[in-house]
Design a protein around this nucleic acid. Sequence first.
DNA 1: CAGTGAGCGAGCTTCCGCTTGACTT
Length: 804
Amino acid sequence: MFKIYSVALQPYFRILKKLIMVKNLVIVESPAKAKTIEGFLGKDFVVKSSFGHVRDLSKTKLGVDIENNFTPIYEISADKKNVVSELKKLSKDAEVVWLATDEDREGEAISWHLAESLKLDLKKCKRIVFHEITKTAIKNAIESPRSIDLNLVDAQQARRVLDRLVGFELSPLLWKKVKPSLSAGRVQSVAVRLIVEREKEIQEFKTMGSFRVTGLFYAMHNGQPATIKAELPHRFQTREEALTFLEKCKNAQYFVNDIETKPARKTPAAPFTTSTLQQEASRKLGFSVSRTMLVAQKLYESGKITYMRTDSVNLSDTAIGMAKEMISKSFGDEYIKIRQYSTKSKGAQEAHEAIRPTYMNVQEAGSDDSERRLYDLIWKRTIASQMSDALLEKTNVTIGISTTSENFIATGEVLKFDGFLKVYLESTDDEDDEAQEGILPPLKIKQELMPDHILAQERFTKHPARYTEASLVKKLEELGIGRPSTYAPTISTIQKREYVVKESREGAKRGYTQLILKDNKIDEQKKSEITGAEKNKLFPTDIGIVVNNFLLEYFVQIMDYNFTANVEKEFDNIAQGMKQWTRVIKEFYYPFHDKVENTLQKSERFSGERLLGKDPKTGKDIIARIGRFGPMVQIGHPDDEEKPLFAGIRKDQSMETITLEEALDLFKLPRKVGAFEGKEIVAAVGRFGPYLRYDSKFVSIPKQDDPLSVTLERAIELIEEKRIKDKEKIIKEFKENDSIKILKGRWGAYLSADGQNYKLPKDKDPEKLSLEECLNIIKEGTSTQKSRTTRKKATGKATGKTKK
DNA sequence: CAGTGAGCGAGCTTCCGCTTGACTT
């Protein structure tokens, strides 16, 4: 009976199977991209994402079989197991698998890894590429498939293996010679070097003063006085020279000697890449590099902008078309100028478009303030890039002085046609812009100008600017080091390792002299200004400096700013099939490895030791150096009869600059402050800064107080403040059991009992929990507690992240 | 979350580049 039915139904089963079966499986890297593309292709296509790389070298082991001609040992990444098994299932039934990963070295490798780990039948496997997400681009790609470029894959393998070998041989060397848990790598170590070297330049910089002379003049224009600001083209080195000049200007007459007018133009900046977006968002919106990427990711996922990790300045034809229409409609055709930009950066691989709005006619987008502001920036930059030049007229007026051959120069700028400036102007990193260009009144040659005053002001040369996160990215990109997807992570790595800190520092007062000539009288004034203030700049730490010096001493090759560029040339040779990838690695590895071995055997511990002086009490040496837990000072040597004394250096101090006195102060802690309510108060400095300990509780000492000098009264005040704060934290207490409390924490209410914390059930009001319910939570909590200790390896890493 | 620092030795750390969520006591 059943058999008859099944035979009769067979044709229907076949149709059904055909319907379920995927005819074409397309695999791309990003899920957002997959969604868009699926809309372009018909019902016969299913588009899935690989979520980036699916396979990599072992996370913990070296993962390279050096003996066996550097064979990489790949593993499916833990978080990609599900992805791979799903893709495997789909690909089995598919007639054709289209590998549509990005067209660059990494993208080619992802396709190859997919083919390998999905065990794809190469006969039904087609490799396609497109640079823009448009229907035509994708249809075109489908029509011209190719096979996987194994040379390009090999170039990626070489890149991967080289980075692994460098990172996993240098880091352990640092653990032994400097301090545990440190790291070194082709990218991060050079990033740190840039910051350390800039700091050194700043320390060695000698500030020079000179006198800048400006004059304010009047010219009559339509019966009204108009002002003209002018400046002497050179500066005086001394106050005396400046004074002599002003003396000469007494009773002098001023004439227009020459007027020179010439046209000038300004050109818009290229559309955004990852790096330029990070720079502009930092300058214009004050975003950190990671915030920019987070916000951009959201805009991308909601379909508002194109892909945000790109090194290309290229816009698709459709994008240019949309921009043209938008400009024409909003500003008029005279504002349109179609431009093709080409990349300037080393090693760009241009697998994507520039970062631009998906739809140019959408002028505002984003679901919160950050998104809206970043979108606005992207929209303006993209539109401006297709607009006409701004036309200017620059005027230089030379003003003669009757009593000397010196001339003042006044410069003016008139905007003749605003062009792209109507929408957007790129900002610069230059902090000081003393040049003042404004509009000049109409002037004639020989015309006399009346002086209001002449000012000679002492100005100082400035040291090179410290890097911001964004300007470091710019520098790395110029050197061809790192990729759009790694700029933000690299910057957080070097901060997480405590090689570098991002800080703002208050400036100091500096006096300067100013001489004013007004009404034929010279007046001298002493003034002061704030100098050296820094906001969100990158500073090297002691550890950063010591590790950098160590690597420079033993591994100059890796630290060379051109190292990446040099190996990139080799990777290109591999990609072009001119060289075997394992040969490139071999040539690099053996000399490198010998150096590692050599350094391991021969070099001493590298701790950046610095002798500060002698202890006045014992006559022993006082030394600053890096210890197991970071920078510290010690009195005496380990081989002395008595054990040396140790003290950690405070966060606001550094090994490089700490004085003998400051070091001695560190040994005065912990210090007894006095007694309060019958118990002793002790002041000390811990891992998280200065603190008071009282009744086995800790109270932080705020910045304005010093643990060395804090008085008993002040200490009591701080303890009482803390008591009030702790009270505010309590949501609920139990009379029956005072060790159990419900407290307000960073992530909302939680349960605290005997120093252990527990999560509260989400569906219950924390204020209404009974003691019984709490005891239950604690009981159940023990099981989660256990699972957490077994997971310790994983969570330990996560907490390390939040520590900073 | 706040006492460390020599040496002994267990077991741990680490790279760069491609992608997103998971989830915080």
